[in-house]
Design a protein around this nucleic acid. Structure first.
Length: 423
RNA sequence: GGAGAGAUGUCUGAGUGGUUUAAAGAGCACGCUUGGAAAGCGUGUGUGCAGGUAACUGUACCGCGGGUUCGAAUCCCGCUCUCUCCGCCA
């Protein structure tokens, strides 16, 4: 959620930010509810103060005396009024809270205008796009694909989009996860193993609720949500905590399975491993002081890029335009890797600054020793990296004329071999 | 899953309807004291919201949510979590 003070003092700035994101939230309704709510708060609090003062008087009076009984009568009326006003306030609070949660985080000034993915800016490209040879085909057309990947049985066991990885395929998944975690450790990012289910409060704090409810799997009995990314448990790890300034910045990472319903997706986007309902990902999380968050975003992107460079996969970094970025982000880079067989870019990482949007919802603060006040930290997160599309790129780009797949050098120690061959 | 016990501030812990403005102690911070320190003494020590330029004021918060009452940390109902024992279990 955005800063209330900013919203009250410069609603026009927020309004233009919302416009930049092509969001249709009704800011006037939010402001109106805020004004009404504040008025009502003053009213209720004044009544309460009156009640409290009367209470101390009554404590000293003779119980059952004429004066006492008279006072009880008067206070009964007051009590009823308080009950009424308080009820109205609670109702208004709920309305206001829903409205407040519906305000997106306005983008940073450096975010380009635009309404769709076509307007994203190519910020950087790395590596040479290989020439497509006749034998360069999409991974889903490999004639030996079932040797490493089993969609059919995944569908039988669970449903579409839940493939089994088999043999070298399973090992490649594990190798990538290990490689990503080892790299993070080397970069001084502390590793965590996280819960794969979270409660509604956690999902709200990171912005999945109420915005993206339909994208998450939900348990029937305990109303828990299967995490769409380790970002959710990681960010909430410090929920409701006040940190010392000296604790910051905090860098953490976690590997998890990520579960996404991907409601509404179709077509060639979902062929093969391009889009699945469950996938592995290593997520990097940063809790930082506000003044450094944009520098931290650049270094986060640099770090994610370094993984693709070590894997020798050509990629590009996109600076997302206002209309294509998320609800909670203020600035976002996506990394896309080239898949030569499909002749298309596949998103493998998204690095974002949330400023205080998440920390405000999650109440993650730090004590500023100069002012003595508690300030919200800025949170950032980025994939480092998502496994399946990197897997795809390794398969398609590494495919040799003889049908084998040459693996990136850095993965050889993890795989125990330098190529996957058709058997 | 069953039975029992419990949840109070940074911590320990008192408090079973009204001077509780949550006792007391510890810790922490600052001050006095000291050559310096310890001890001692004194002062301070939470979070949110609202009002105010501000100093500050008001209000809420004793696990969470309801209820009873003129008045609830305290009584009633529901829930969550923790501990002990039993059951089940990688």
């Amino acid at each position: 959620m955005i800063d209330l003070k900013t919203l009250r003092e410069s609603p026009e700035a927020v309004r233009s930010g919302i416009l930049k994101k092509r969001n249709d939230c009704d800011l006037d309704a939010v402001l109106k509810a805020d004004g009404e709510r504040r008025k009502l708060i003053v009213e209720v609090e004044n009544l309460r103060a009156e009640q409290k003062a009367a209470n101390s008087d009554m404590a000293q009076m003779q119980k059952g005396s004429q004066d006492f009984l008279e006072k009880v009568g008067v206070m009964k009326t007051l009590s009823a009024r308080i009950k009424e006003s308080d009820g109205a306030l609670k109702e208004l609070d709920a309305t206001w809270n829903d409205l407040y949660l519906s305000v997106p985080n306005p983008p940073h000034e450096s975010v380009p205008e635009g309404k769709s993915e076509a307007d994203n800016v190519v910020f950087k490209s790395w590596g040479e796009i290989p020439e497509r040879k006749p034998y360069n085909i999409p991974h889903y057309d490999f004639d030996w694909l079932e040797q490493i990947l089993d969609f059919k049985r995944g569908t039988k066991v669970t449903g579409a989009g839940f493939p089994f990885f088999v043999g070298d395929g399973a090992r490649l998944v594990r190798s990538l996860v290990s490689f990503f975690l080892d790299q993070a450790n080397e970069a001084g990012i502390q590793e965590m193993a996280v819960p794969f289910f979270v409660n509604a409060e956690s999902a709200t704090a990171t912005g999945q609720l109420p915005d993206k409810e339909g994208q998450m799997y939900q348990t029937v009995e305990d109303s828990l949500y299967a995490i769409p990314t380790a970002e959710v448990p990681l960010t909430n790890f410090l929920r409701d905590e006040i940190l010392e300034e000296s604790d910051l910045p905090i860098y953490r990472c976690g590997h998890s399975a990520c579960f996404r319903r991907e409601a509404g997706s179709y077509g060639k986007d979902v062929r093969g491993l391009n889009r699945v309902h469950q996938f592995d990902k290593v997520e990097i999380l940063k809790w930082v002081k506000p003044e450094s968050s944009y520098d931290e975003l650049e270094s986060l992107r640099d770090y994610a890029e370094s993984l693709l460079q070590k894997l020798e996969l050509p990629y590009r970094a996109l600076l997302m335009c206002g209309g294509d970025m998320g609800f909670s982000q203020t600035k976002q880079y996506d990394l896309e890797v080239w898949a030569v067989g499909q002749q298309r870019w596949l998103e493998v990482s998204s690095c974002s600054n949330f400023e205080s949007f998440q920390s405000r919802r999650a109440r993650i603060r730090y004590r500023d020793p100069e002012t003595g006040k508690n300030e919200f930290v800025h949170t950032l997160n980025g994939s480092g990296l998502a496994v399946p599309r990197v897997f795809v790129s390794i398969l398609e780009n590494g495919l040799q004329e003889d049908g084998s797949v040459k693996l990136p050098d850095v993965l050889v120690p993890y795989m125990g071999k330098d190529r996957i061959v058709k058997v």
